Simulated assay, not measured.
Amino acid sequence: MCLGIPGEIVELLPGRPDLARVEVSGVRRAVNIGLLDGEEVGPGDWVLIHVGFALSRIDEAEARAALEFLAGIGAAYDEEIAALQDSMIDGAGSDGPSNGGASGGPSNGGPSGGTSNGASDGGIG
C-alpha cells in the first residue's frame, strides 16, 4: 500500500518553479510540484504528497478528512511522516527536524549533498 498525505503549501520557492515548501503535521519540507500539470498553486493550497512529490491538488475539507483518517490508522501514517522528515530536495533547505547529519544533506549518508533516491519511503509502497 502506498500512502499519499495531504500538505498545505506555505510558500513557492523563489527561483525554483518546480518546488514549494509544504507543511504536513508540523513538518515543513520542499516538495516537487512539477507533476501538477500546470495547475496554479500557491500558499494556502492543499496537495496530496507521496515521497516528495505533489500528486494532485485537493481542497481543505478533503485534506482534513484524509488527515483524520491517517491519524486513525496509526503506524503506516507515522512511517510516512518519518519518511517525509528524512526527505530533502537539494537547494531547498528545511524548516523542520532533519536527520540528514551535520551538513544538512540527505539521509543516504553520501558526501555529495545529493537527494534521497526515494528507495526508502518508510517501507510503504
Score class of each variant (00 low, 15 high):
I81D: 02
I81R: 14
I81G: 02
I81W: 07
I81Q: 07
A82D: 09
A83C: 03
A83S: 11
A83I: 00
A83T: 04
L84M: 05
L84T: 03
Q85L: 06
Q85V: 10
Q85H: 08
D86M: 07
D86I: 02
D86R: 05
S87Y: 09
S87M: 11
S87Q: 07
M88T: 05
M88E: 09
M88L: 13
M88C: 12
D90P: 15
D90L: 13
G91S: 11
G91L: 09
A92W: 04
G93A: 03
G93Q: 01
S94W: 08
S94R: 09
D95K: 03
D95V: 09
P97R: 13
S98G: 12
S98L: 02
N99P: 02
N99W: 00
G100R: 09
G100A: 08
G101A: 03
G101L: 03
A102K: 11
A102S: 15
A102L: 15
A102T: 08
S103F: 12
S103M: 13
S103L: 14
G104H: 07
G104D: 00
G105D: 13
G105T: 10
G105K: 10
G105P: 03
G105N: 11
P106N: 12
P106Y: 02
P106G: 15
S107A: 12
S107K: 06
S107V: 10
S107E: 06
N108G: 10
N108Q: 06
G109L: 12
G109T: 02
G109N: 05
G110A: 15
P111L: 13
P111V: 13
P111W: 14
S112Y: 09
S112E: 15
S112H: 14
S112D: 15
G113C: 07
G113Y: 06
G113P: 04
